[in-house]
């Protein structure tokens, strides 16, 4: 980007500006393997045109199986798209469609640690591409729901069978959705919020 004339950097459209009363934001992450519909879901519920934030990192070229002392470095860019929903004049919700390569998640400081929860999207034609993501959420203690993005030619499994295949406890919601539809994506987010609410009720009792 050319910063010489910073007046020309397109910022948010007037209607996309947050009010000055915006106090704080919360975030939800949308995860799942390659091509399961993360970007589509972000786009269908966001009030702004989805945006992309990037992170670039270098990989040190020194290691056990490299030529010892080789200073070569490879740059890798990882992109993440996100959208926004204004909840009230004070509160804003951000949705991040995180890259399929979960190994990169740690790059974004606090992305998962701070998230209220996660939506795991799965495609029943390739269930296994979302396995690793789920495991990583479990390891980090990030609560999640599973949304089955129903592609037309995808096999349909009864929820009980999916639950067994995904090895998920009874309380974790599993639901069908069509991420291209705003109402359907909204229902997924609502299911996540209700699930988080039920966890909070339980937590308050123990």
């Amino acid at each position: 980007m050319d910063f010489k004339n910073s007046d020309t950097i397109p910022g948010p459209r007037t209607e996309d500006r947050l009010p000055h009363t915006a106090e704080a934001a919360v975030k939800i992450v949308i995860v799942g393997g390659f091509g399961v519909g993360k970007t589509t879901m972000v786009g269908s519920v966001s009030e702004i045109r989805p945006l992309t934030t990037e992170e670039t990192m270098t990989q040190a070229g020194i290691g056990v199986d490299d030529n010892y002392g080789s200073p070569s470095k490879t740059a890798t860019t990882v992109a993440m798209d996100f959208g926004r929903i204004s909840i009230t004049d004070e509160l804003v919700l951000y949705l991040f469609g995180t890259p399929g390569q979960e190994r990169f998640w740690f790059l974004w400081n606090g992305l998962f640690e701070g998230a209220l929860g996660a939506v795991v999207l799965v495609d029943t034609r390739r269930l296994e591409v979302s396995f690793d993501v789920m495991g990583r959420l479990e390891e980090r203690g990030v609560p999640f729901v599973v949304a089955v993005n129903t592609f037309p030619d995808a096999p349909r499994y009864p929820v009980a069978e999916l639950r067994t295949a995904l090895d998920l406890p009874e309380e974790i919601p599993i639901l069908d959705c069509d991420v291209r539809r705003r109402a359907s994506s909204r229902d997924v987010l609502m299911t996540l919020m209700r699930f988080l609410h039920s966890l909070a009720m339980k937590g308050a009792l123990t």
């Binding site: 704080a24 909840i87 919700l93 640690e113 701070g114 998230a115 209220l116 609502m190 909070a200």
Partner: peptide, 21 residues
């Protein structure tokens, strides 16, 4: 600063988000 996940989530916060959605 953002509002981040707590061990026990703030129910008022979750209810506000549900309302917004």
């Amino acid at each position: 600063a953002p509002i981040v996940r707590q061990k026990v989530a703030d129910r008022n916060l979750l209810e506000a988000v549900m309302h917004g959605l």
